[in-house]
Simulated assay, not measured.
Amino acid sequence: MKWGTKYGPEYVNRLYAMARRHLSGDFGFVCLTDDPEGIRSEVQCFPIPPLDLALAPGQVDRAWKKLTTFEENLYGLRGQALFIDLDVVIVGSLDAFFEYPGEFLIIHDYARPWRRRRITGNSSVYRFEIGAHPDVLAHFRENMDAVQARYRNEQTYLSAFMHRKGTLAYWPAEWCPSFKYHGIPAWPTNYWREPFVPEGARIMVFHGECNPPDALAGRRNRRFRFIRPARWITQFWNA
């Protein structure tokens, strides 16, 4: 899914290329977007379904648009869908993401000491049956103000909703590690050791202050958070 100007078409094109290299067999690759310009022809582009979400001046976009993937009739698409954020790097086979048992699967949001018991998932990678959970979107549309007041962002709401339905489940922790939590050497070794791909990783998730091109250039966009260039990215993040 791509909207706005933060991510250009090259992110979609690279994601498609990485998926093609790491999936066996045929698959369809879909991008919901407000601008298909520059996206490669192998990608099916559809408009993002309307959400009628009005952000107040200065209000941060909390990715609520992702909930439109749960539209009951999503352009006639059918089957299992694996949603993947644009700002990730695929480093291993994706086949198991379609084989792992469960009705709705998501990354278990990365545990920090103050939130180890949270049920919240990280929606950088989640799997669902297209059209099977329209109530997620319907409830949000009918209760936008209340939902936004209660939940910080779309993944917090989505996780809570699926938990109440009894369908929330998580990927094995090693499949989708966080670059900033699991792929950067501990201080002070980060000054002489390069970032790395943890063992068992399939998708490296870039969230927060650092995207793949930043990491590749050794930029972390936070003061006092030094990293060396993550040169391993050149092996995987290409079209």
Results as ranks from 00 to 15, higher is better:
E142C: 00
R20D: 01
F140R: 07
V205E: 03
D35L: 05
E199D: 07
G76D: 10
H182A: 00
H108C: 06
Q44M: 13
L105H: 02
D214T: 01
A54D: 11
P229S: 11
R202L: 05
S41Q: 15
G218Y: 13
A169S: 10
R127V: 02
P9T: 08
H139V: 10
P177R: 03
I233Y: 09
D85G: 07
L23V: 15
P36D: 00
I227D: 01
R193N: 02
I119Q: 09
M144W: 02
R193C: 01
H163C: 09
W192N: 03
W3A: 01
E42H: 08
R220P: 00
F179A: 03
P195E: 10
G76N: 08
A146K: 11
M162W: 10
F128Q: 06
V88H: 05
Y157A: 04
R20V: 00
S93V: 01
F97P: 01
R220V: 01
I39E: 10
V147A: 14
I119Y: 07
P188D: 14
P36Q: 02
N153D: 15
M204F: 04
D95T: 05
V125P: 00
N143V: 00
E154Q: 15
G208T: 06
N211P: 00
R222I: 02
H108I: 03
E42N: 13
V60Y: 11
L216H: 08
G4M: 11
F29V: 11
E154D: 15
E154K: 14
K65W: 15
D52G: 07
S178N: 12
